[in-house]
């Protein structure tokens, strides 16, 4: 399905950018930037995009089967930073099952669209979250073996 993208309105005033207002807002004021301490961390994900060199780290803290806190750090283009930030806002407060079902399309929708050549950026955050959720499972299993 062709997704409608609405880049910043431009009639010769201000910068003509290929990004939506929402994406720019997440780029300028990214949410949940930072790291969680080892004690706070229930899951950690590190993913890289071998295609463009972008990298993302994501931490989650889980309480009552919900993502209580989430934090990220990201090396990458504006698309990578904004989609990482948007992903954390989608995941925060969600149950683990809800978080597992978040897709790159959800992230793109929240941002009101993304240029076609930046679509792959939106996968970075989703993959980092999946990795963090998997990491949590492993940590729980290890705790069960070595209490």
């Amino acid at each position: 399905m062709e997704r409608e993208t609405r880049p910043e309105e431009n009639a010769g005033h201000g910068p003509a950018l290929p990004y939506t207002r929402a994406l720019l807002e997440h780029f300028v004021n990214p949410r949940n930037v930072g790291e969680l301490s080892e004690e706070e961390t229930d899951g950690f994900g590190l993913v890289g995009d071998p295609g463009c060199g972008d990298q993302m780290k994501l931490w989650i803290s889980v309480s009552d089967d919900r993502i209580e806190r989430i934090a990220f750090k990201s090396f990458g283009c504006p698309g990578a930073i904004a989609t990482s930030s948007a992903l954390t806002t989608l995941a925060e407060g969600r149950t683990l099952e809800e978080a597992r079902r978040i897709t790159d399309d959800d992230v793109i929708e929240l941002l009101g669209g993304i240029p076609e050549h930046k679509r792959h950026c939106s996968l970075l955050g989703v993959r980092a979250l999946q990795a963090a959720l998997e990491d949590r499972k492993l940590r729980l299993q290890q705790k069960a073996i070595r209490p």
Binding site: P15, F27, D54, F75, P78
Partner: peptide, 14 residues
């Protein structure tokens, strides 16, 4: 080092 050129460019562009 440590940051992406395209992000710098957008920051300057804004």
């Amino acid at each position: 080092p440590g940051v992406d050129g395209e992000s710098i460019i957008l920051g300057l562009d804004l």
